[in-house]
Design a protein around this nucleic acid. Structure first.
Lengths: 130, 130
DNA sequence: TCAGACCTTCACACCCGTGTCAGGGTCAAG
DNA sequence: CTTGACCCTGACACGGGTGTGAAGGTCTGA
């Protein structure tokens, strides 16, 4: 498919699709006329890239770990210890982020609950803002 | 304390401490001579700011939610529905990030395990890393 | 054949978090 | 009084992710 279609399917601007290519996150074929030709599997891949980007992982890291993220055929032939170190580092960073986010999500939930209790307790009627 | 001390205690550059102030993340007193005077409680606050920033939350959002993140005395008097909406939105976003990060952390772990199995299976002898 | 939709590259520009440097003030110890 | 450590403001710069616009090529349908 052409860039417009992929853009539409993934909700990612064409600009960004070219950028991801430039950053080595995806590999794209070319038609005779110079147009980019995107394979179908790139739909999922781009979506995953968006997820990771939205979660605060920079492209550089994504490029490193993306090839290792396919739940399906993970036949690991090349056990590069250098890569292993990178993966472990990134996994640990994710772990840390998860902990922090969980902690703060809970704090937010508590606060929201407290707000709700305050309104229902204080005013036995309509939940309104002052 | 002065900015240098806080910087040292939090491992955050003075530049950044001024920046956080500028972004409304912290409120700082001034001495007669114009020097910033930081309260003790700011040590924790700055650390929390770092955590959130490192987890990919932008300053604008941090400014919104930071006042609601104190586990201790959360006496909610002002139940502003506008604020509530913001908090809920942010909590949901955190939830989503947590899900994505968890998913990818697990994928990484699986891959790392696969690497390790590949090496130990292939080469019965030297155990590697961890 | 021409319009319009879609593609190409290149470049400028923005925001955000951060470093760094210049020019200048405060203050305590020698 | 001078030095040195520390502070101030202001500015430039940079990388990352993103938008936008210019100038031009491709293709399809009226």
């Amino acid at each position: 498919m052409k860039i417009g279609e992929l853009s539409h399917k993934t909700d990612v601007s064409a600009r960004m699709l070219r950028y991801y290519e430039e950053q080595g996150l995806i590999t794209v074929e070319r038609r005779e006329n110079g147009f980019r030709e995107y394979d179908d599997y790139l739909v999922d891949r781009v979506r995953k890239i968006r997820e990771l980007l939205d979660s605060g992982i920079p492209t550089r890291i994504i490029a490193d770990i993306l090839p290792c993220l396919n739940r399906e055929q993970l036949l690991v032939t090349d056990a590069d210890p250098q890569l292993r170190a990178v993966l472990i580092e990134q996994r640990d960073k994710m772990e840390q982020r998860i902990a922090i986010l969980t902690h703060n999500r809970d704090a937010l939930s508590r606060y929201i609950d407290a707000m709700d209790e305050a309104t229902t307790a204080d005013r036995p009627g309509a939940p309104n803002g002052r």
